[in-house]
């Protein structure tokens, strides 16, 4: 899109206010307008959708908005993502597959879903398993889909032991299968534990993940 940054900033501010107001139709109009202007999907994801969610999360952490409002913003974003899918899924395939999932007891799925979409943007077939996926389900899905990569998302830090257990299971069942882990939980540390798992790597941000994917 030939959109200059100030224009994008203006769209972003309107979008954020709409999200905080629960104005789903308004946000939908903004996303549609951006799509009509042929915004690059990466710009839409990084500079509008993801940025807004981070800002909403910060506002909640500062007690400026309620958790209900934060949930509403997340739910609205989930809905708005569906507007982008026809474009994402029509990108030519590169023949690589990934399974993307949240681990058991992780109920925040949006970050993982965005990871799946970023992979799709690069032509991967990304199978998204959703929130709260038991290890056994994850392992059987990997067995079925035979992916080139597994991506795991962790948003709550006290679920770190569960993530490590999951990595243990995956490592035993598929020793050579690369795994990328990431998520908001690592803001408070813990990424060094991933080094204990030879096939696993930590992606500190969606940009890093994208670099890893592009270098594949």
């Amino acid at each position: 899109m030939g959109e200059s940054q100030p224009d994008l900033e203006m769209f972003y501010q309107r979008y954020l206010y709409g999200l905080l107001d629960g104005d789903r139709a308004g946000c939908q109009r903004i996303v549609q307008e951006l799509l009509d202007r042929d915004i690059s999907l990466k710009d839409l994801y990084y500079h509008i959708l993801q940025r807004a969610l981070y800002d909403v999360g910060d506002l909640w952490e500062q007690n400026k908005i309620s958790v209900a409002r934060e949930h509403m913003a997340t739910a609205m974003t989930e809905h708005l993502l569906t507007m982008v899918y026809p474009r994402i899924f029509s990108i030519p395939r590169c023949g690589r597959r990934a399974v993307v999932s949240c681990i058991a007891n992780e109920f925040h799925q949006l970050g993982a879903k965005m990871v799946a979409d970023i992979l799709e943007l690069h032509g991967w077939d990304a199978f998204f398993l959703g929130s709260n996926t038991p290890v056994s389900d994850l392992v059987s899905m990997v067995r079925e889909k035979r992916p080139d990569l597994v991506c795991l998302s962790l948003s709550i830090q006290f679920n770190l032991p569960a993530l490590l257990t999951t990595l243990d299971h995956l490592g035993k069942a598929f020793p050579d299968l690369p795994v990328i882990v990431g998520g908001q939980a690592f803001r408070w540390g813990g990424s060094e534990r991933i080094a204990d798992y030879p096939a696993a790597r930590y992606a500190s941000s969606i940009y890093v993940l994208e670099e890893m994917v592009m270098a594949w």
Partner: peptide, 23 residues
């Protein structure tokens, strides 16, 4: 609230799968 959120998540996931299958 949490049931609604769960339903919304499931609906969004189904929509994603559907669009993926359509593509």
């Amino acid at each position: 609230q949490s049931s609604m959120l769960k339903l919304n998540q499931e609906m969004a996931n189904i929509s994603r799968e559907l669009q993926q299958a359509n593509a």
